[in-house]
Design a binder for these strands. Structure first.
Length: 298
DNA sequence: CTTAGTCAAGGGGTA
DNA sequence: TACCCCTTGACTAAG
C-alpha cells in the first residue's frame, strides 16, 4: 500500500502545473514553463520520498497545450533528458505514478472529432510516462464518458473505441466509476469485455452506487488488475465536504473515516490517492495512520 | 497589491 | 433552445 495526493504540493514554494492562456502562447514561454514544471515535479517527488508518500498523480498541465494544434514544439525531444532523470528517480524509489486527463477526454463521444482529440490527449499522457520509461503500472485514469441519451449504446461505444486506441496507451488506461453516470458495476461490465482495469473511487461509490458495499466493490475492482503488469489496484479516496449538498472534496482528511476505511478493506492491498484539498498535509496524516498497517509500503 | 472574471477542451439537467 | 450546473487552480486584467 502506497499513499499519495494529486498534482500539487502546497508546502513547497514551486508549482509543477504552471500554465498560461492560449492567447499568450509562444514557444519560448512554453519551454520556460515546461522547464519550471519539470524542476518542480522532481522537487515534489523528493519531498514525497522524505515523507513516505510513495504515490503521486502528475498534473496534466505538465506540458501546457500538449495536444493542441498551437503547440508545434517538439517538447518530447527537447525535455527527454529531464524526463528520463525524473523517471530514474521514480524507479529508484519505487514510486507509483498516475495521471488523470480531465473531463474533456471522452473516448465514447458520438463525435468522431471529440474522439480524435481525446486520443491525442491520451497520446500526450502516454508519451510522458513512456519517456520516463515507467512500466505499465503507471496508469492513466479516465471516466467512461457521457450517456448521450442511451447508456447501453454509450457503454458499448466505449468498448469499441477502446480497441481503436493505440496499444501503448491501452496498456496504461484504466476507468474510474464517476459520481453521476457510470457506476462501479458499469465499469466492471466494460472491463469484462475489454480487460481494462477498474479504478475504484470510494467517494463516487458512496454518492452513485449499486448496492455493493465498499469492500465488495473493491474486491471486484481488484480482480480487474493483473498483478504482474498493472500492479496493485489504485483507489481514489476522499471525504465529502461538511456542507453536505456539494459534491466537492473535503478540506482535510477525516481520520476516523479513513481509519475505518483501512479496517474494512483488510487485507486487500492497493494504493490510495487522497483527493483532498490540503494535499500533502492530509497525505502525511494518512501515512502516519497507515504505517501501523501491515500492508503499508515502507 | 488585491480581486474578480475567465480559461482549449463536454455533458447533463431544467425551464 | 438557452442557460445553468458540475470542479479546479491559476492566469490576467482591472481596480
Amino acid at each position: 500500500m502506497k499513499i499519495g495526493y494529486p498534482c500539487i504540493n502546497l508546502t513547497l514554494k514551486c508549482s509543477g502545473n504552471k500554465t498560461f492562456r492560449l492567447k499568450s502562447y509562444s514557444e519560448p514561454r512554453l519551454i520556460a514553463t515546461v522547464e519550471s514544471n519539470l524542476n518542480c515535479l522532481l522537487r515534489i517527488l523528493e519531498f514525497n520520498v522524505k515523507h513516505k508518500i510513495f504515490f503521486f498523480r502528475i498534473s496534466s498541465d505538465l506540458v501546457p497545450f500538449a495536444s493542441h494544434p498551437v503547440n508545434t514544439c517538439n517538447w518530447s525531444q527537447r525535455f527527454k533528458d529531464k524526463l528520463e532523470e525524473i523517471g530514474a528517480f521514480i524507479k529508484k524509489h519505487s514510486l507509483r505514478i498516475s495521471m488523470h486527463p480531465d473531463q474533456f477526454t471522452l473516448i465514447n463521444s458520438p463525435s468522431e472529432d471529440i474522439f480524435q482529440r481525446s486520443a491525442k490527449e491520451l497520446a500526450y499522457h502516454t508519451a510522458i510516462l513512456d519517456i520516463m520509461q515507467l512500466d505499465a503500472s503507471a496508469k492513466i485514469q479516465i471516466h467512461v464518458g457521457g450517456i448521450y441519451h442511451d447508456k447501453d449504446t454509450s457503454l458499448q461505444r466505449f468498448i469499441n473505441r477502446f480497441s481503436l486506441i493505440d496499444a501503448s496507451t491501452r496498456k496504461r488506461l484504466v476507468i474510474e466509476n464517476d459520481d453521476r453516470l457510470f457506476t462501479i458495476a458499469d465499469c466492471l461490465q466494460i472491463s469484462a469485455s475489454t480487460g481494462i482495469p477498474v479504478l475504484f473511487d470510494v467517494f463516487h461509490h458512496r454518492v452513485n452506487s449499486t448496492s455493493a458495499s465498499v469492500c465488495e466493490a473493491l474486491k471486484l475492482a481488484q480482480k480487474t488488475w493483473k498483478a504482474r503488469t498493472d500492479g496493485v489496484p489504485m483507489v481514489d479516496y476522499s471525504s465529502q465536504r461538511i456542507d453536505g449538498s456539494s459534491r466537492a472534496h473535503a478540506e482535510s482528511i477525516d481520520m476516523d473515516d479513513f481509519q475505518q476505511f483501512l479496517e474494512e478493506t483488510k487485507p486487500i492491498d492497493f494504493d490510495v490517492m487522497l483527493e483532498i484539498k490540503d494535499k500533502e498535509k492530509s497525505a502525511i496524516k494518512a501515512v502516519k495512520a497507515a504505517s501501523q498497517d501491515l500492508r503499508f509500503h515502507q
